[in-house]
Every structure is written in structure tokens, then in C-alpha cells.
């Protein structure tokens, strides 16, 4: 097997673009939030400063091997997810490593980082980390359910599991998007989207008022830097999947930027107006609202 250097270059470039985009975008989102409440808010480049500051910490501790590897798993999960999904439709190179697997790979690789992070945080021995993990895992099991159903529905609709093919089928006008051809599945998926973006009302995992900040309580310095990087990268990688599946994908980086931002804002908008759910409440919520919509989606296909 020969190494495809250009592809690796493009992958690195994709990574670079998306990380920077994510840095700016998340800062922008915070800034918008601040402006809404009448503040100036953080500087648009604040994320970079925080990142460097964390890397520049002089003293560090480690709780053990898994603790050390936790952030590595986490970031690998984010980077891998991004690279396994075609970023820009119609470009062989910006499809990165999507030749390795289809939609199923993307769906399951989401858990890679979660697992590693959970293991790492748990090795720190901090009970708050463990509590955060139980909350996160409990919530994600049901939150992902509507997505799984929606994905099943649209892969039945398009009769393929290949993401590129699904995007291809949505080309040729906005009304070809799954959003319009299959609104029920889209709605179901959006339940999952809002539920897994770690924003209110589903952010009890990191509830600072009760369990400092949940799983990453013990993380700092470069560990935290890796996780911060992932924090800006991972939601975008996830949003890209939603964009590809439901919103027609992106044919160029500009469209990419706009669509990712718009989709991302859905969870933000929901978040700013809803107070936090407890775990069992959010489980019940997804079973009561998300699940029926998902079921409807697979029945209607």
C-alpha cells in the first residue's frame, strides 16, 4: 500500500482550516451571546490565548497512563471523525479518508473519544469525574437514539450508506435537501443534535454548580489544550455529518462555513432559552419526544 502524500496534505489542511474556523466560530458564538445580554464579551481571538496559556503552564501532574491517554483518545476521536467524513462535496481531496468507511464508521467513531475520555477522567479517581461520566453516558444513550433512527430512515430513503452518495442525491436545489424531502427524519436528527452538543438544556454532564465541571475536573495544561482543541473541532465534525446528511452538504469552503455556523446555531438558540435538565428528565424527554419522531421517520420511509 503506497502512501498517498497529497491526500495526507489535504487532510492536514482540512484539519488546520477546521480548527481555526472552530476557534473563531465558538468565540463568535460566545460573543453573540454576550452582545445579546448587553456585554462586549470575549475577544474573538480569546480561544487562541487560552490555548497557548494552557500549553505554557509550567507544572503538570499525571494520575496514570489512562489519564495521560484520555485527551489523546479524545482528540483522535475528533480528528478521526472529521477526516472520515467527506468535508467538501465534489472534491476527491477534501473527502479526506472517507474511503475507509461509510456512514456507519462515522456514527460509531463518535464514541471513540467519549470512551477514551471517560477512561482517562475515571483514572483520576475523582468522584465528580465519575459522576459526570455516568451522567454523560446515561444521557447520550438515549440522545443518540433519534439520530440512529433518522440515519436509518434516510439511508433507506437513499438506499445507500455512502455519505458522498447521500450528498449527491441532495444536489440540484435547496428542495432536494433531506430537510425538505424528509423533514421528519431531519427533526428526529435535530433532537439528537441538540442533545449531544453539550449545551443547555442537556449540559448537566459538566454542571459547574454541583460537580465542578464533570469529567475533565482534573485536566489542565496541555491535556486541557488538547481537549480545548477537540472542543472546537468535534462539534464541527459532528455538524458536518448533519450537514451532509440533512442539509445538502457543502460544495466549497464558503458554503461549509455558512452552513456549519447556521446548524451550530440551532443548538445555541435552543440552549439560551432553556434551563438545564436533570439526567432522568432528559432521558424521559428523548423517549417522549425524540423517539416517537424517530419511529415516525422510519415508518414513513
Amino acid at each position: 500500500m503506497s502512501i498517498d502524500w497529497p491526500r495526507i496534505g489535504y487532510a492536514a489542511l482540512t484539519l488546520f482550516i477546521v480548527i481555526n474556523y472552530g476557534m473563531i466560530m465558538t468565540a463568535l458564538v460566545r460573543k453573540i451571546g454576550a452582545r445579546v445580554s448587553g456585554r462586549y464579551g470575549i475577544r474573538i481571538y480569546q480561544n487562541y490565548i487560552d490555548l497557548v496559556k494552557n500549553i505554557a503552564l509550567r507544572s503538570k501532574i499525571t494520575h496514570g497512563v489512562m489519564y495521560y491517554l484520555g485527551p489523546v483518545f479524545r482528540l483522535t476521536g475528533g480528528v478521526g471523525l472529521l477526516l472520515f467524513v467527506p468535508t467538501i462535496y465534489g472534491s476527491a481531496m477534501w473527502s479526506n479518508f472517507s474511503f475507509a468507511g461509510d456512514l456507519v464508521l462515522a456514527l460509531y467513531f463518535v464514541f471513540f473519544g467519549t470512551l477514551g475520555m471517560a477512561l482517562g477522567a475515571a483514572e483520576s479517581g475523582h468522584p465528580y469525574s465519575a459522576i459526570g461520566i455516568t451522567r454523560g453516558l446515561s444521557q447520550v444513550t438515549v440522545a443518540e437514539l433519534p439520530l440512529a433512527l433518522a440515519v436509518f430512515a434516510i439511508s433507506l430513503q437513499y438506499q445507500t450508506l455512502n455519505i458522498t452518495d447521500i450528498v449527491a442525491a441532495q444536489q440540484g436545489g435547496i428542495f432536494n435537501w433531506t430537510l425538505f424531502t424528509n423533514p421528519v427524519a431531519t427533526l428526529a436528527a435535530l433532537f439528537a443534535f441538540v442533545g449531544t452538543m453539550m449545551r443547555s438544556p442537556f449540559d448537566v454532564v459538566i454542571a459547574p454548580q454541583e460537580i465542578p465541571i464533570g469529567p475533565p475536573t482534573e485536566y489542565h495544561s496541555s491535556y486541557l489544550a488538547l481537549m480545548q482543541t477537540n472542543r472546537v473541532l468535534f462539534p464541527i465534525a459532528k455538524t458536518v455529518i448533519y450537514m451532509n446528511l440533512f442539509f445538502g452538504g457543502a460544495t466549497n469552503w464558503f458554503e461549509f462555513a455558512i452552513k456549519v455556523f447556521a446548524i451550530y446555531m440551532i443548538s445555541v438558540l435552543v440552549g439560551v432559552v432553556h434551563p438545564r435538565f436533570r439526567v432522568e428528565q432528559s432521558i424521559t424527554f428523548f423517549l417522549k419526544w425524540g423517539l416517537p419522531v424517530g419511529v415516525l421517520a422510519i415508518l414513513l420511509v
Partner: peptide
């Protein structure tokens, strides 16, 4: 609005 000076609170 201390946030604009890069000041944040951590738990």
C-alpha cells in the same frame, strides 16, 4: 463585563 479582559471563572 470582565470577560472582555480575558478573565474567566473556573470551577
Amino acid at each position: 463585563d470582565a470577560y472582555r479582559y480575558g478573565i474567566q471563572w473556573r470551577a
